[in-house]
């Protein structure tokens, strides 16, 4: 018992350490040390896919005489990063009480452009104008970072062509669609000298000569000549390079990422504790071991029995009616049928 955990405990006695090596408006580079790879990877995954942002989700096209198809334009509009500052206090539109649109769950943007000159006209993201009530004055503005203040090019119009459309931007996460991703790319690196042999570098003659050293190589001790392989070693320092897509500043992406993990955990803790009855945890195990389960007398087998039968034996201790498994159509219906 005293080999692996103890070694790790010593290293982690100081607790995790964060060091920032570069930070500006588009990226933050930092080092997370004295943490486990599983936590570092959770943070990476959450920053990639689970931080809510705002993006155009519905487009009502009133007029489109451009050469591009309606759905093509709608897709391009969806991919335009929108300022998501304050998106935290918005609802997901599916959770909102309103019917359709309100300032708590959506931002409406309109685009109306007609080429009246004799040269082709370029329509940029700056031409998207937020027109609805908003909870703050920047939420939903298209992100414009170029020197000319144009933003991404949406489409081009020949003389006489026109587009007129209304966009409804909603809150969402990148797990559902990548347009909601707050980060453009996340660099994640550890063990620049490959001491742990997690990488099997391809080579012709000599991997050391053929592979360029990582930018973090000088941050860590290179392996000594003839050093034996340490099979107890675990990765301990992680180099993140978080690049923002624009909707959230890079440091906010990191903070929000941690927040999202915490919200996940809080939700689960809440769910575990709300079902607890007065008899505490120990009574909770009646359910899975109950004779009803073993016999499977009714036709529904193991699925309903441990949870559906005998309400207060349900695994989380709540009365049968409070757990979803107690009120399944099968579980509840039994009283009617028998």
């Amino acid at each position: 018992m005293d080999y692996d955990p103890m070694v790790m405990d010593d290293a982690e006695a100081m607790g995790p350490v964060v060091k920032i090596s570069q930070a500006d408006s588009v990226r933050v580079k930092y080092q997370l040390s004295n943490a486990d790879i599983s936590f570092a990877n959770s943070l990476r995954r959450v920053m990639l896919a689970e931080i809510p942002t705002l993006a155009i989700d519905l487009v009502e096209i009133e007029e489109n005489s451009s050469v591009l198809a309606d759905e093509f334009i709608a897709h391009r509009l969806g991919l335009i990063p929108l300022n998501s500052e304050g998106v935290d206090s918005m609802f997901f539109s599916r959770d909102c009480d309103c019917d359709g649109t309100c300032e708590r769950c959506t931002v409406t943007l309109t685009l109306h452009a007609k080429c009246t000159g004799d040269e082709n006209m370029h329509v940029f993201a700056r031409d998207l104008v937020p027109t609805s009530e908003r909870i703050n004055s920047v939420l939903g503005n298209p992100i414009i970072t170029d020197a000319d203040g144009l933003g991404p090019l949406i489409l081009k119009l020949r003389p006489g062509q026109e587009v007129k459309l209304v966009c409804i931007a909603k809150k969402g996460i990148a797990k559902e669609h990548a347009k909601w991703a707050p980060s453009a790319a996340i660099g994640f690196e550890y063990d620049p000298h490959n001491k742990l042999h997690h990488l099997d570098l391809w080579y012709e003659q000599d991997p050391k000569a053929e592979w360029p050293p990582s930018e973090y190589a000088e941050w860590e001790e290179p392996p000594q000549e003839g050093e034996p392989f340490d099979y107890d070693a675990v990765p301990n320092r992680f180099y993140f390079n978080v690049e923002s897509a624009g909707s959230l500043p890079p440091d906010v992406i990191v903070s929000e990422g941690i927040k999202v993990i915490q919200q996940k955990l809080a939700g689960l803790i809440h769910e575990l504790s709300e079902g607890d009855g007065g008899d505490g945890m120990n009574g909770d195990y009646g359910g899975p071991r109950s004779p009803e389960y073993a016999t499977g007398a009714d036709g529904f087998g193991g699925y309903t029995t441990p949870f559906g039968n005998g309400g207060n034996q349900s695994s989380w201790g709540g009365a049968g009616g409070t757990t979803p498994y107690g009120t399944t159509p099968y579980g509840a219906g039994q009283s009617t049928w028998s």
Partner: peptide, 12 residues
Amino acid sequence: VQRVRLLPGSTP
């Protein structure tokens, strides 16, 4: 929806 459940066959 209950997001965590105990699988059958569990002991304390």
